[in-house]
Design a protein around this nucleic acid. Sequence first.
DNA 1: GAGAATTCCTTGACGCGTCAACCAATTTGG
DNA 2: CCAAATTGGTTGACGCGTCAAGGAATTCTC
Lengths: 162, 162
Amino acid sequence: MSTAREGTTAKEAIRQTKPFRSTGQEAVITLLLTAETVRWALHAELSGRGDLTAQQYNVMRILRGAGRKGLPTLEIAERMIERTPGVTRLLDRIERQGWVARDRSTEDRRQVICRITSEGLALLRALDSPIDTLDERMVRSLSAAERRTLIRLLNKVRNDAP
Amino acid sequence: MSTAREGTTAKEAIRQTKPFRSTGQEAVITLLLTAETVRWALHAELSGRGDLTAQQYNVMRILRGAGRKGLPTLEIAERMIERTPGVTRLLDRIERQGWVARDRSTEDRRQVICRITSEGLALLRALDSPIDTLDERMVRSLSAAERRTLIRLLNKVRNDAP
DNA sequence: GAGAATTCCTTGACGCGTCAACCAATTTGG
DNA sequence: CCAAATTGGTTGACGCGTCAAGGAATTCTC
């Protein structure tokens, strides 16, 4: 959707002449298009500074939140926006960069505990404010009430997806 | 986010104890989580029947819309929810399955025209109604007014992402 | 018209997602 | 306790995304 960000409605972005078959369909397609746009903006912001991908950034934030004691691999996976077993390889790469460290737990030797390093923390610190700004810019045209509404409606969708 | 679909708010899904730093951040994260949930449902539905991925399905729908005359590769890319050069390889795979055919255009021999085959059309026909049902189920808890609101707010976000 | 620029793809390298299969620890149950 | 099940994580195969680089037509420019 190279040009989608210039359009107004999903219909235009998709260049579809036929209307959507239902509001459900329109909502779903608009949701996916919008998420893609946001994902893209994040990607652009992150690859400018440092060399983190969005998912790596995500993992690092989770680990920062976990503090000194760190988290076992699967705990991280559970908290991520994306899904599991890629997490192992994701961590491999971040570890190679020196931003996280992994150790096998001593209490339960099946677990691998992941911790963010001080280099990792420094990197995040540099990213915090640009990303906050970006988040804000994404929704700059929505009033406070509209933001709350959007969040509420999205949560409703999320909760009846199963 | 193996367990995210059971939660209620993004905050719970993410198991974050700290509140979001801004409603902008909450909106962005909720949006990404929700899109992921929807993407997942689609994936599940599609891999049950036939053996299409969501992106392949997307391309086939675009080609069906284009009709007999087909579309050049980059035109497809422009209409997709995702981004370009993977499209070539995506088409490679669908072509291997016999669902699309490609020919070099005679007027402009740089272009490769893609057309859906009758097998492709048959496959889509079988998928149409289950997917319509799915789209509907995704938003079943939203009233008609709420759907319109959601669509409107998402479009606002999409249009000020640049 | 011959070269330069542009357009339309395609390819290679690599990050990430999915699934299925697989160890190694740990727990459970007879 | 010891075998069987469960849990935590890793690996292989493969689909798709990104970027950067390149080849083949076509168009532009002088």
